[in-house]
């Protein structure tokens, strides 16, 4: 968990953006890229350093799907719910993952192994339905192959 130690680091990020228009979102991008999520204590520091209300930061962070408030899992599974994937059975894939992992969308399993999320179109509709597992795009995924996918993720560690 990022803590006070990284304050100078964050203030460097903020320094870079503070006097530019639309800079909050750029600073948040850097934080998201670095930690895989936007930790609350970092948001609090950004609020102080950039003189932006925490409420505004949360409005931005929760508006965009890209930003996360929870730490990612060791394995990140994204189910595409874009139109093509949706029609090709993505909701069933999502349900299968939810029941097998015991988490809802946007949540991480208590052991920190898996983070499950849905995403809008990942840009390869021809391969629908698509699941992105740890950055690898899996095509034409069937509910029956979910068990194997989870198993494989476990083994790869």
């Amino acid at each position: 968990m990022p803590d006070a130690v990284m304050v100078p680091d964050i203030s460097r990020t903020v320094q870079k953006w503070r006097n530019k228009r639309g800079s909050l979102i750029m600073a948040l991008h850097e934080i998201q890229n670095r930690y895989g999520y936007v930790p609350r204590n970092v948001s609090l520091q950004i609020a102080q350093l950039m003189d932006v209300p925490l409420a505004r930061i949360y409005e931005v962070v929760t508006f965009y799907n890209y930003f996360k408030l929870e730490p990612p899992g060791r394995n990140n599974l994204s189910v595409c719910l874009g139109t093509a994937c949706y029609l090709k059975g993505a909701p069933e894939l999502l349900n299968e993952l939810k029941s097998r992992l015991g988490v809802s969308e946007g949540e991480t399993t208590p052991d920190g192994e898996f983070h499950l999320q849905s995403v809008r179109c990942v840009g390869c509709c021809g391969l629908a339905p698509v699941v992105v597992a740890n950055g690898e795009t899996l095509s034409k995924v069937q509910p029956s192959s979910i068990e194997g996918l989870i198993h494989r993720c476990h083994k790869e560690e």
Binding site: P53, L54, A55, R56, Y58, E59, T62, F63
Partner: peptide, 14 residues
């Protein structure tokens, strides 16, 4: 946010 400058309430999600 504007009338009271408190910024306790906000809109979350979309």
């Amino acid at each position: 946010q504007e009338m009271q400058n408190v910024h306790a309430l906000c809109f979350l999600d979309r």
